[in-house]
């Protein structure tokens, strides 16, 4: 008996040592310059598909992914920056303002992508620090079992009382959306206060909100268009309208991190994202491409045909901290 127990115990120790040795070996290989780490707020399934496609095109490269909301990413990057141990090689966030924040912190490196000429020039940072990689739009999602809304103001409509959601401003797209509406006279912060008074609640991010609209926990909410489209195509009772005031357009930027240990791999990943092949993956996911040589998906109305509620990027960058603080104050009371 005792002998057996000894064996079991020694066996456990052996297993552990093997695992430890095996993974310390793994850790060594990640230091090489053909491995990059991408910090992104792109949904898990999309980034998984993307890195798999990149890996297939470049079998000798490895892409590691840290996925979190834009706000969480910025906070982690800032912490790493202060400790002088930045792990990211590429950042791929949801909104221009997040990229601007990193640029101001001197954490980005300008880079001329090989795909530059094919991309809508409005979506490229004039100094070349970041590139819009996909166009995503904040639209008004609703559960198809309730009355169809028509305007952003429907978020304050008593018909939906208690069933109104909004992604937290920790999400870059939501930040852009909130900032855009707050800067307009017809909305302003009073609008968000009314949303809150109508029982509006904040949720962690867009996909969470979209799921809840699909299950009926929420009736209406501002959400990213492509998430609604893919859920609708799967048969979920969800759809969206482009509100009469217009949708809020967000161009998710990708950028090279300063002092990357694998700059060449990082650049090739960025180029791949912007390439025809990469953009076709986007298009298949019902996301609008930034390339002029790619036709939109049939499920997505062309960006030229819809009304857009213009975003004032200067307002966003000047009022960065205030937008977060006021939103938090309204939705945590």
């Amino acid at each position: 008996m005792k002998q057996n127990l000894n064996k079991i115990f020694m066996g456990l120790l052996l297993v552990m040592t093997t695992i430890l040795v095996a993974c310390s070996g793994e850790a060594d290989s990640t230091a090489a310059d053909d491995t990059i780490t991408v910090y992104t707020s792109v949904p898990q399934d999309l980034i998984d598909e993307f890195s798999a496609a990149y890996k297939e095109a470049n079998p000798d490269k490895t892409v590691e992914v840290f996925r979190a909301a834009s706000g969480d990413l910025l906070s982690k990057l800032r912490t790493e920056h202060e400790a002088d141990s930045v792990e990211a090689d590429v950042v791929w966030v949801a909104d221009f303002q997040s990229a601007e924040t990193l640029k101001d912190l001197d954490m980005l490196e300008a880079y001329e992508s090989t795909e530059k000429d094919q991309i809508n020039s409005n979506l490229i940072d004039p100094e070349g620090y970041y590139y819009g990689s996909r166009i995503i739009n904040m639209v008004l999602a609703y559960n198809t079992n309730v009355e169809t809304p028509s305007s952003w103001k429907d978020l304050t409509n008593p018909a939906y009382e208690g069933k109104v959601g909004i992604p937290s401003v920790g999400s870059g797209t939501s930040f852009s959306y909130v900032g855009t509406l707050a800067s307009k006279d017809e909305f302003g912060w009073e609008f968000f206060e009314e949303v809150r008074n109508n029982g509006g609640k904040q949720f962690s991010n867009n996909s969470d909100v979209a799921e809840r609209v699909a299950t009926g926990e929420l009736s209406v909410a501002p959400v990213l268009d492509y998430m609604v489209t893919s859920m609708r195509l799967q048969g979920s009772p969800i759809d969206y309208v482009i509100p009469e005031e217009g949708l809020v357009m967000v161009a998710s930027p990708i950028a090279l991190v300063k002092d990357s240990e694998a700059p060449e791999t990082a650049k090739s990943f960025i180029d791949f994202t912007l390439s025809k092949e990469g953009q076709e993956i986007m298009s298949a996911q019902n996301v609008v491409s930034v390339r002029e040589d790619i036709e939109g998906s049939e499920n997505v109305p062309s960006i030229n045909d819809v009304k857009i509620l213009e975003t004032d990027l200067d307002y966003l960058s000047e009022n960065n901290d205030e937008i977060t603080a006021i939103f938090e104050e309204i939705f945590t009371n």
Partner: peptide, 9 residues
């Protein structure tokens, strides 16, 4: 935790 936060229940 992250999956539930993304709504992938």
């Amino acid at each position: 935790f992250n999956l539930q936060e993304q709504g992938n229940m």
